[in-house]
Simulated assay, not measured.
Amino acid sequence: MRTIRKTWGEHLADGWIYLTMAFVIVVTLYPFVFVFSMSISKPIHVIEQSVWLFPKGFSLGAYKKVFENEMVWRSYYNTLFYTVVGTAINVVMTALAAYPLARRSFSLRRPMMVFIVITMFFGGGIIPMFILIQELGIYNTRWAILLPSAVSAFLIIIARTFFQTIPESLHESAKLDGANDISILVRIVLPLSQPILAVLTLFYAVNHWNSFFPAMMYLPEQKLQPLSLYLVKILVQNQEIMSEGMLDSFDRALYAIQLKYAMIIITVLPIMAIYPFLQKYFVQGVMIGSLKE
């Protein structure tokens, strides 16, 4: 088999691409490696700021102190609840909205798409939304986090475009066999839509896991607040993780900085661990769902 030899210009271009990608990888990974190293190094090295990449010594004391805090566990539970329940609501609502909009037989699909697109450019703002949450009676309840973000206009469009790639003949055959629209959606469309469902799940789950502003606005009760808001209070507002009496003054000073790094790792690690399992569906679903045949 004849091989195609690259020119010097092509070799230089490949080398430049490899160097650029290596630089991007280093810039991207360094903050994670640094934060992780700071969280497991011995506290004295963290205080001295002598850790710049790899950990110095080894200590899990910061993680132990963090998990001794009851509010961390409570916030973790809240985040898991909002992520799991919220993502389930999001995916169901998005699929139910996108499916009829993808059917040519639905006469109102164009006007409905216009209304959906308008919501991407215009919004009521924070104050009207706050008043709406209060008038609905869901202020300071879990529904204040789940209902306002039940569906995304952008992801409806992505899912609709994906559903349009499913051959119309499948719908017609199912109709001839006596299936209704719900049966077609559940038994035919959704099993063929695993890539876009994975995309929706990943987008919504990451958004719920990282979201803190709605909780800051609508959840004054601390026992309902997610882990991301607790992390904001620690990093931005300098709220101490340990309550009075849990640490003596020496340990409090020793772990003051390292506890923040440990909290960052505890917050971001679960969502980072999920992504590799959805990556293949994520790439495929975004590419298919972003192009219309």
Score class of each variant (00 low, 15 high):
G61Y: 02
L19A: 14
T28V: 07
Y77E: 10
P220C: 01
F282K: 02
M112C: 10
I188S: 05
I127L: 14
V189R: 11
E68F: 03
E172S: 05
L291C: 06
K6Q: 10
M217P: 00
M71I: 10
P31F: 05
N78Q: 06
P167C: 11
L101W: 00
F130T: 07
F54R: 01
N210I: 03
S37Q: 04
R142C: 01
L219T: 05
S107F: 13
P31A: 03
F277M: 07
A215C: 02
S243N: 14
A150P: 05
M287V: 14
A179L: 06
V27L: 15
A273F: 07
N78S: 03
G178M: 07
R109S: 11
K42P: 01
K65S: 09
A98G: 11
A262P: 12
T87R: 02
I265K: 09
E244V: 09
K56H: 13
F163Y: 13
S169W: 02
Q279S: 13
K6Y: 14
Y18W: 09
P220W: 05
F154G: 09
I131L: 14
Q258C: 03
F250M: 11
E68D: 12
E240D: 09
Q237G: 00
T165W: 05
A22F: 10
L247W: 00
F121D: 09
E68N: 15
V286M: 15
M112F: 12
L259E: 11
E48N: 15
P128I: 01
E70A: 12
T20Q: 08
A98S: 15
I44D: 15
M112E: 01
D251Q: 15
P191V: 01
S228Y: 03
L176M: 15
L254Q: 14
R110N: 12
F121V: 07
W52C: 00
V85L: 11
L176T: 14
L12R: 14
M246I: 07
N210C: 06
Y99L: 00
Y275G: 04
Y255M: 09
Y139G: 05
Y30Q: 08
G125R: 04
A262I: 06
Q237S: 07
Y76D: 00
D181E: 15
